[in-house]
Computed example of a mutant assay.
Amino acid sequence: MNEKMLDQMKNGKGFIAALDQSGGSTPKALKHYGINEDQYSSEEEMFNLIHEMRSRIITSKVFTNERILGAILFRKTMNSKIEGKYAAEYLWEEKGIVPFLKVDEGMEAEKNGCQLMKPIKSLDEEIKEANEHKVFGTKMRSVIGAANREGIAEIIRQQFEVGKKIFDGGLVPILEPEVTITIPDKAEAEEMMLEEIQKNLEALPEKYQIMFKFSLPTKEGFYDELAKHPQVVRVVALSGGYPIDEANELLSKNSGMIASFSRALLNDLSAQQSDDEFDAKLDEAIENIYQASIQ
């Protein structure tokens, strides 16, 4: 584990940029960026276009470690180059931004109101590649769609089990049990989830260091105590479908969390913008998310 990266993630001021759209979400991300599906005819062309978008963001003069602590990458991005360097190496060596890798392969069908991760068949290979590219950590997502104790307990057990394997492989895992923000029993689901997390943390050997990524909580400051746990490097928030202004407002009320936003970061960017226009819009989004993260 890179101790400088660890210190930046644990103590730095700023947020994590989520640039990890994968196969299922890429067409939507490109369309929002101003590139329609009729502008590419293969998966390879699609991923080349999304890599161009991500490269434009990462190489922007406003995308710096003064406000951005880390960035989450998709595997294809990690294995692609930006200005002659692989993306993760470019992030750390040129920008001083800590690289993470999304490792989950989607989710199972809903059971007990929740969706577990599908088995990550390529996990060993991805851990090896991530270490070769000097990646610091990983991210993996499950979804909680109801306040169902059995389903939530199973999700948290799975996240911790895979997280331990990732840490044993030399990386710091971000566990992401996302509570759907529109469910009527969201607050109750969050209570159950935190209880299950605390049980698993109590049983976690001291050597393990982990991070968490949560939906913005119903109750202000809900994860503040969790963020102080000695084995928790950081607690980060996903925007979860909230409009950017609302997401930033909610985040600013949770001092124990920093942002790890995707849609909220990329919302006003377009392939048709000039570089100056692009940088101005990106700078505005970064500043707003940064301010919400350091409250």
Rank of each mutant, 00 (worst) to 15 (best):
E37A: 14
A237M: 02
R54K: 15
N11W: 13
E190A: 00
T218C: 14
K213Q: 07
A130N: 10
H229A: 11
I97Y: 09
M9Q: 02
Y86V: 11
Q209R: 09
E43N: 14
N248E: 11
L194C: 10
E43W: 08
L91R: 00
L30E: 06
D276F: 13
E44Q: 08
M193V: 09
A189I: 03
D7M: 12
N36T: 13
I155G: 02
I294G: 08
S60W: 05
A29W: 00
Q273T: 09
N254T: 06
K128I: 13
E89W: 02
M257G: 05
E277R: 08
A271S: 11
G106M: 09
I289H: 00
D7T: 13
Q21A: 06
K28I: 07
S262K: 02
G96I: 05
M140E: 06
V233C: 10
K219Y: 04
L6P: 00
T218N: 08
N288A: 15
A71P: 05
E110W: 05
L6T: 12
G169Y: 06
E161G: 01
D38E: 13
A71W: 02
T218A: 15
E110P: 00
N79S: 02
D275S: 09
K4N: 07
V235H: 01
L226S: 05
A18N: 08
E45G: 01
N254F: 05
N65A: 04
K102W: 07
I183P: 02
V103L: 07
K186V: 05
N79W: 02
L201F: 10
I97F: 10
L216K: 06
V232P: 04
L49C: 03
K31E: 14
K199T: 10
N48W: 08
I97H: 01
E37F: 15
E125N: 11
V233H: 05
M192T: 00
G240N: 07
S80D: 13
R149H: 11
L216M: 12
N267L: 10
K28M: 12
K118N: 14
I58C: 04
K199S: 10
F167Y: 15
N131A: 11
L251I: 00
I294L: 13
F278K: 06
P217K: 08
S60C: 06
R141P: 05
K253L: 14
Y208S: 03
K199A: 13
T77N: 12
G221W: 02
V143L: 14
